[in-house]
Design a protein around this nucleic acid. Structure first.
Lengths: 346, 346
DNA sequence: TTGTAAGCGTTATCAG
DNA sequence: CTGATAACGCTTACAA
């Protein structure tokens, strides 16, 4: 079965076509440098032999791989999957191949993977969020591998990014919650350590409360991992800790769905007894009942733009500018005014 | 900005450590061939220089890339994302990197991408399902690139796979539907052209009906793309076409969720007016209300095993054996006995 | 327009 | 256990 039949090389093609390897190479890479007649002969030979250039050799000689690496926390979260799919499609259209790895939200893992991807000759990298050990950025600079930050945008950061302002977006949601008349607010956040998106979302909520004259120290916050099950647990914990809470602002839709399910299990009415908001606007948010008020983020568009930006960065080797995408509030059923009278405690 | 400062090479490390390049290479690849003292010195040098092996060179010399390519229909479907995540984790643990592309369920796209991945020197490929142009398999054989089929398992096929029997699994669901007393059954399937999983799932339903003495030609089938929205539309179309239908067997959970939502919008009770079943057991299935009776498929386990199998295939270069994973029925709320009296038509 | 030949940075064989 | 050294297959000056 294992006929160690190695692939035809440039040399084979050259011989068959009766030209030099240089000519064959040129036919493939810059056809206009070769006269029609020769080119034709070469292409026939290529076809006949079923020749495919050897990747390693090509990389070594050309010092380009046409490979882009992407590091995402996890493929299992639909918001990354969706953006990544669009990213890949656009990359493909531009002749690049995507190399993906996931980090499981672990900084050490990310560091490792970045080295791996660079080692594999990725021409450029897509990274999620700004926050990471500065030595990584230095390393990439030194290796001369451009990278684009995505899923986040902040005026305060100077590195090129394609994303949205997590903090401002969350401010928008929190404001809406306040507008509905809520004063006892709880937050279920994803783990903020090493995660600027999660952190900024919490800050956004605090900004608004502070601005409205609330005492921040009263904001009950539960931090937990991004799973529906965790959202459920956090919901219960928080409502036990702070039973007077009438609105739960969640760091993302996954947590919000968890919170919603548990709230219902606890016999609470949403939004009558407790309002719940999400973030991201994944499909899930409009499927559950009641549907979840959330912040819509244009993930596909973000992926697509990131591909365009990053290939430009790679090809032009100059500092690109950041692109801020606009998120917008999706008002749905899970947010409403608090009851005018307190509900029975749990 | 663009300080064309190229990375340190093996040679640099060798010089700094005062040894030959061969020794450095050995330290990195087969440490046990090098005496402790030398190794230590070398590793320090590696660290000092921040040396990363050049991928192209390595590929060329070793004729291995430690890269595995995976071609999935789309990352946006959670069932692929989940399996792929596990696949990647296991691959990583074994020192391989994953190269992913999606085909959008298009055979031509798949063909293209396979060539690309092989061109990039993928040591092995993970492909979803058995069905594809036979020339592709010949091509891979010729290029001597082993590939593993996944997400499907069939005794009738000889190529190594890690998956489950789509047809038998669906038979199991259909039988359960029959057991509940349904006789007017409809099916919402994904597009079966070029998709053996979708096709086998339809066959599974037919097997059971045929076996129970039903006339297959009466089975109302709607084929549609894998989106919730499509499931909704198909549900309405089917119930309009065959209003007597009391059970909708769906090719997967995405379609089932769509069908469920639309059925509710149409004012039908599930399962009292119409039962609905899914397939895959994605998270979604237990979150909607009523929760969906479906077939649980161990996606993570499948991905993990696929990684083990495929790397074995790559490393041992011998025909592997297929692994059949067992799916199992998840009875939930969306399937029940039909009402004894007919409901009002739509 | 085409050919020649010098790298590119590893790995692996073979001596020592 | 370590060191020379010959591949590996392609790109790209430079020469013709």
């Amino acid at each position: 079965m294992s006929s160690r039949q190695s692939s035809p090389t440039l040399d084979d093609v050259a011989k068959l076509a009766g030209v030099s390897t240089a000519t064959v190479s040129r036919c493939l890479n810059s056809p206009d440098l070769v006269v029609e007649k020769t080119r034709k002969r070469v292409l026939v030979a290529v076809e006949d032999l079923g020749y495919t250039p050897n990747f390693g050799a090509r990389v070594m000689a050309a010092k380009r791989t046409f490979t882009i690496g992407a590091l995402i926390p996890t493929m299992e979260n639909a918001i990354f999957a969706r953006g990544l799919q669009a990213f890949q499609e656009e990359l493909n259209a531009r002749g690049y191949t995507l190399l993906v790895s996931s980090t499981g939200y672990k900084p050490e893992m990310e560091k490792d993977q970045i080295r791996t991807l660079v080692g594999r000759g990725a021409d450029g990298l897509l990274l999620i969020g700004y926050e990471r050990d500065p030595t990584i950025h230095e390393y990439l600079e030194r290796q001369n591998v451009p990278f684009l930050v995505s899923w986040a945008y902040s005026e305060a950061e100077r590195h090129p990014s394609v994303g949205f302002d997590n903090r401002a977006s969350m401010r928008c949601i929190a404001q809406e919650v306040l507008n509905q008349g809520h004063t006892k607010i709880g937050m279920i956040a994803s783990i903020t350590a090493d995660n600027d998106r999660a952190f900024q979302r919490v800050e956004g909520v605090k900004d608004v409360l502070r601005n409205a004259g609330h005492d921040i120290s009263c904001l009950a916050i539960e931090e937990t991992s991004n799973e529906i099950e965790s959202g459920k647990r956090a919901c219960e914990t928080l409502l036990t800790r702070a039973p007077e809470t009438t609105a739960l602002i969640c760091g993302n839709d996954v947590l919000a769905v968890g919170a919603l399910l548990r709230a219902k299990e606890l016999g609470l009415q949403v939004p009558e007894d407790v309002s719940i908001t999400g973030f991201d606007d994944m499909e899930l948010a409009q499927i559950v009942s009641p549907s979840i008020t959330t912040m819509h983020v244009p993930h596909r568009e973000m992926g697509r733009l990131a591909a365009i930006k990053l290939t430009a960065l790679v090809e032009e080797r100059k500092e690109g500018e950041s692109v801020e995408l606009k998120s917008h509030l999706k008002i749905r059923e899970s947010l409403g005014a608090p009851r005018s009278y307190p509900r029975l405690s749990l």
